[in-house]
Design a protein around this nucleic acid. Structure first.
Lengths: 204, 204
DNA sequence: GCCTGGATTAACCGAAACGGTCAACAGGAG
DNA sequence: CTCCTGTTGACCGTTTCGGTTAATCCAGGC
């Protein structure tokens, strides 16, 4: 990797990175063409190969960047500074939104990368993703004060349900934005209402 | 299209169709190779071109089949025979499961097809999908007896939440099946519990 | 055994796409 | 003018792809 990449204007760096996230998130590694990444990013293919020695290196760079970004956002939004289940979820949602604002395709890329079958990639990725995911979930259940909840509630099921719902809700919002539909300024308002509604029912 | 395709043994027809659903659901139209469909289906590429005149025809055949399958399952499971919101959702979930059992990649294909950008496909698909989706939702809200619900509940929001949750839950189950983890025999049991739990809270 | 006809395929073709390279170009600094 | 840095169009060898064709396989009838 050519480290002069980091001396580029920030805007250009992000444009290239986001183009790569986008193309890699829509195609498998093998079928994601470098030429398309260059086109989407508004630079020439030759320049891409000037900064990244080859396709694999670009891919692994993106992978490491995505993990770093997620970590950074989690600490910036102080996700682990509370013992309250719903406050923690709220913080991590805000963190996720901030990542998406800068890198709209980062999460889609990360999911796709996790399932990537290309042998050159598979081994190095799956273990690190699993590690990140497990550790963050472990932290969650270590920190959270479970004594607040009703006994007849399976809090892990609620957690899953909220994850799935927030995921669907975010996808819906992004879709609306893409089609340039009008939506509320505070994107999370509606979902936060849902969160509080759930909260009222599962607390003692 | 060569109608002798339908005289093939049912098992072979389904094998080919499912192979095509799978490959088209994992790649965009342009990047889904006919050769891969043939390989996955366990037949030669030449045979594929013997039954379907070209790639586009196979794709449109799959699209029409998928709509037909969804309709068929909806009527078989009598989705519109009730006015109860939760019973209707329950029925349509059972219908969806039955479709997935026969055609595991049908829904993923349908979603991908809806967003397909290839001009040859885009026009003919989006309108029909939109029509199907709108009409089925209209039927839902026409049939459902909304008087049962608490006034402070936005039932459409609940509907969305349940859709997203059931979607996530199904994905999770399919993932477990793929990795051959042990799961309960009655896949829906857990989610149905969730459904009833929601029901208790939103009814008057 | 041989013939026939439909199902199935290996081998092939021309065109396009792909990863990667390289010589050349633009333009600002000295 | 020269140098230097960032940038690119054009190119190359290889692979992939949609689609075709001639040949093969095989069951059933004689």
């Amino acid at each position: 990797m050519n480290y002069k990449f980091f001396q580029l204007p920030m805007e250009k760096q992000q444009r290239i990175i986001n183009a790569a996230y986008k193309v890699f998130s829509k195609n498998s590694y093998k079928k994601a063409p470098m030429s398309e990444i260059a086109d989407v990013g508004g630079v020439s293919k030759a320049l891409l190969f000037h900064y990244f020695t080859n396709k694999l290196e670009l891919y692994m760079f993106l992978w490491n960047s995505s993990i770093a970004q997620i970590h950074k956002a989690s600490s910036e939004y102080r996700v682990t500074d509370t013992t309250d289940f719903f406050e923690m979820i709220h913080c991590s949602l805000l963190a996720k939104c901030s990542v998406i604002r800068s890198y709209p395709y980062l999460y889609q890329f990360a999911v796709k990368a996790y399932y990537e079958q290309e042998p050159k990639i598979k081994s190095s990725i799956q273990e690190s993703f699993y590690a990140v995911n497990k550790s963050s979930e472990n932290i969650l259940w270590e920190m959270v004060d479970v004594s607040k909840f009703r006994q007849d509630i399976d809090i892990r099921l609620i957690y899953q349900e909220l994850l799935w719902t927030s995921d669907g809700y975010l996808r819906q919002i992004i879709l609306c934005l893409k089609n340039r539909f009008l939506i509320l300024k505070n994107n999370l308002k509606c979902f936060v209402g849902m969160l509080q509604h759930t909260e009222n029912h599962v607390h003692m």
